[in-house]
Design a protein around this nucleic acid. Structure first.
Lengths: 125, 125
DNA sequence: AAATATGTATTAAGCGCTTAATACACCGAT
DNA sequence: ATCGGTGTATTAAGCGCTTAATACATATTT
């Protein structure tokens, strides 16, 4: 588990984002156990409450599930997982289109720019 | 001048963004005068210091220029204007590509989504 | 000259929100 | 039964950052 923080966003938000990406990407599979709050806190050197805060968020979004005397696990609810993907992709698309339209960038230009950027892409994904 | 605020971002940031868009879009032309700090503050009901803060930002980025006894004006420096467009577009592209790559969305999918969203676009741009 | 408007700087206040501290109940293992 | 680990809730602390208050010099207008 390696996670790099920036200073702009709250830590717990970044933790949630990290998990969301891992899940959406399939690195974390449905039903898979994730570290306990205190364990995660130790691993990435954050306050246990911050880990709890992140888990609470995910719990509320049903991304993880916590049963008595079991480690928290990634949901197996296919609907939730689908929603997650749509949320992530949809929001990205939305933000992007809103931005380029607000400054009158033609569609084709926008598409070309994305294409070039994507393909140039450093292999560190 | 109509401007709608959200609660997430600081007001002065939103004001700057608004001006940047107006400039990038060509609504505000090079050399064009913009309202005084206090006038803007009145128009959109914000504190004069907040307007000043926004103008200061733009001044530091050379987007506007203020000469003694003249209203602040949009820069005529073509280089700066070009940078602005690149900043706005480039950042949007960058964020988008970073997002979709981080969750392994194939390029073609991403392009299609953008295309559809862009074209569906409500005419309120 | 007085009054009004402008740009600008400095400082204080206020506020929200994150992070930290602490506590409690529960369970499994020793 | 005791101890260590867990999830969870409540409350306090701390911090950064925006916004507000105030002031000053300058210039234009009446």
């Amino acid at each position: 588990m390696n996670m790099q923080f920036n200073n702009r966003d709250p830590v717990y938000v970044q933790v949630v984002r990290h998990f969301k990406n891992q899940i959406a990407k399939g690195f974390l599979e449905p039903g898979q156990a994730i570290p306990s709050r205190r364990e995660l806190a130790n691993q990435i050197k954050i306050n246990p409450n911050t880990a709890q805060r992140a888990y609470k968020e995910m719990e509320e979004e049903a991304l993880i599930k916590t049963e008595k005397n079991q480690p928290s696990r990634v949901t197996s609810d296919e609907k939730v997982l689908q929603n997650l993907r749509e949320e992530l992709v949809g929001q990205a698309v939305n933000d992007f289109v809103t931005s380029v339209k607000s400054i009158n960038v033609p569609l084709d230009d926008a598409l070309n720019l994305v294409k070039r950027k994507y393909e140039k892409g450093d292999s560190n994904d």
